[in-house]
Design a protein around this nucleic acid. Structure first.
Lengths: 147, 147
DNA sequence: CAAGCGATTGAGAATCATTCGCACTGGCTG
DNA sequence: CAGCCAGTGCGAATGATTCTCAATCGCTTG
């Protein structure tokens, strides 16, 4: 999932490795966290990159087609548009605090295995999955006790 | 998760059990499937109910606050706004075909247990989860073979 | 049962993220 | 280094969702 890999993808699909595409993906790798479009744009601007919002959207679209990026739902109402780079196998698991929004990304073999099983049971061929666990983090739990 | 239960929720929160709120929730229960706002509006109109889109949004918001409804992500890019009623414990698991979009809702004890474990491991207190498995259904798999 | 009050609704305007259209630019090929 | 076409930037268009506010409803009280 390196920048180099992304450039290979581009070449394979007869797409140009432009400055903008490179810097978007490099920044996503550098952040190593989920992010939204505005914060990505801000970070790129701050680094002096010349890029427009439309191009960011177009690049994110590309990344999603390649399976290098996924949109994640970080609240039960799913109203926030947040993206995350896909680790190997494109599985993203999040543990989200429903109080403060703090999010832990994790990856667990057993989740993948379980999904594989379920897909098989229904005759489906697994491609990926996305698990969000909504819970209350220890800090917020404590605060609740105080009130 | 009956209509009655919804009315209790309303009362507890000092909210009025209006015709509109009742018919929205009744329709959601009747559909027993994931849905989008427009199709819900259409169905209500066809039944001769008088309701506006704004009120539907407001009611969906309420239902989500009560945990009776959840927004689900039925594609990796998460661009479609689709809602689903929450079964017990508010766990929604979907098996989505990435080719044709066909979706199976299921519920599995083992998924809940696994989430519980993961939350505990990080010191979190589980409230709910949402699992989407993206896979290819048997029909689409066959079609691919034909080409 | 009528009046009164605050909650709720409907209609359309406003907002916000995302996409589109189009003229301009830049990467690559020969 | 010339030229083509994909890619970009801008601003306008779109589409979903939320807001505003006057009109209405549901419920409570007299």
């Amino acid at each position: 999932m390196s920048l180099e890999m992304f450039e290979n993808f581009l070449e394979e699909h007869c797409l140009k490795a432009t400055q903008q595409r490179r810097s978007v993906y490099a920044e996503i790798l550098a952040m190593n966290e989920h992010f939204d479009v505005d914060s990505l744009l801000l970070r790129l601007k701050q680094k002096g990159q010349s890029i427009s919002k439309a191009t960011i959207y177009r690049t994110l679209q590309l990344l999603m087609e390649f399976g290098l990026l996924r949109r994640v739902q970080l609240a039960p109402d799913g109203m926030d548009a947040v993206y995350a780079a896909c680790p190997e196998g494109c599985a993203i698991d999040n543990l989200v605090c429903t109080e403060c929004g703090r999010t832990l990304q994790f990856s667990k073999e057993s989740v993948c295995d379980l999904c594989e099983d379920i897909a098989l049971q229904h005759g489906f061929t697994l491609s990926s999955h996305c698990l969000n666990i909504f819970a209350i983090c220890p800090e917020c739990k404590n605060k609740q006790g105080d009130e």
